[in-house]
């Protein structure tokens, strides 16, 4: 019965998606497989989708290695959590107020917020601002401040708050609730789905950011996960750019973390994203129906 239902076109569709899904998942599995392969087997057989000689040595190495991975986790997690919460709070308070008719200058203020979409100062003025004026170089705050406000997110939240019926706000006011209380007690709870979606993207941006750390962070103990990964990769990159010479340099690799350990660090950096993935997917799709599409 089932076979008859599967028409030719359906078969093509399913084959396309199975191929696409494999193309998206297999490369990740490759990295996982390398991280669980015995180091000698990597040298002899190269990378494989299934470990020829299974080993957890790479993970033992990473976790025993002077605590740098745990420290990097701590930095990344605190930056992500604090940054995302602050971003959501600042964004929602600003966009809510920008939709309130009581605010006389809201048109001008909205323009003030949107203008930077048109013209942005670029990396160098930002660098000088953060290092010379705000003196945030080599502090954890620099990792947080760079993504604290986003024009697009203010726009999305503003569109959302506009859909809250005025009568709700009015009735709270008549009940004697102050404006700030009304915001936290009524407007904010209503915007939970939008906040979840925006929060998701902000959190991913914080989690995946390596560039800020690479420009501003020098201390070992302030390195976030992605920057730790990047410095590991830089070592490989150096060997790789001298590809011919790299064979003879194989002997010198002893001082670098083993290949498996690098991949294990990479797996650990993706780990939380994979664990939270069902949640991510749910809120991502939910967010699309809230109004991101209309943007």
């Amino acid at each position: 019965m089932l076979l008859r239902k599967l028409h030719f076109s359906k078969l093509v569709i399913h084959l396309t998606f199975i191929a696409m899904s494999l193309a998206c998942i297999l490369p990740l599995l490759l990295v996982v497989s390398i991280s669980f392969t015995d180091e000698r087997s990597l040298m002899l057989d190269g990378y494989r989708f299934w470990p020829k000689e299974f080993s957890t040595a790479a993970y033992q190495y990473v976790f025993s290695g002077a605590g740098s991975i745990l420290n990097a986790y701590a930095v990344t997690i605190s930056v992500t959590v604090v940054g995302t919460l602050l971003h959501l709070l600042i964004t929602s308070m600003l966009s809510y107020s920008l939709t309130r008719p009581e605010v006389t200058h809201r048109k001008a203020l909205t323009f003030f917020v949107y203008l930077p979409v048109l013209f942005n100062g670029g990396l160098v003025p930002q660098y000088i601002l953060l290092t010379r004026i705000l003196h945030l170089k080599d502090t954890i705050w620099v990792l947080i401040i760079v993504y604290l406000v986003s024009t697009v997110n203010i726009l999305i939240m503003k569109n959302f708050f506009r859909t809250i019926p005025d009568s709700l706000i009015e009735s709270a006011r008549i009940d004697g609730s102050g404006e700030i209380r009304t915001f936290f007690r009524i407007a904010l709870p209503l915007s939970k789905p939008s906040l979840a979606t925006i929060g998701l993207f902000v959190a991913i941006a914080y989690w995946n950011d390596w560039m800020t750390a690479s420009l501003y962070i020098e201390s070992q103990n302030l390195r976030p996960l992605q920057y730790l990964l990047q410095s590991l990769m830089n070592n490989i990159g150096y060997l790789q750019s001298n590809a011919q010479a790299s064979q003879s340099m194989e002997a010198a690799i002893g001082m670098l973390p083993s290949e498996g350990a690098r991949m294990a660090t990479c797996v650990l950096a993706i780990g939380p994203i994979i664990l939270l993935y069902p949640l991510l997917q749910k809120y991502f799709e939910k967010g699309l129906t809230i109004g991101a599409v209309k943007e």
Partner: peptide
């Protein structure tokens, strides 16, 4: 807070 951060992060670099 939002306006201040917009001013600092976007306008000073401008």
């Amino acid at each position: 807070p939002g306006l201040i951060f917009v001013a600092i992060l976007f306008y000073i670099p401008m």
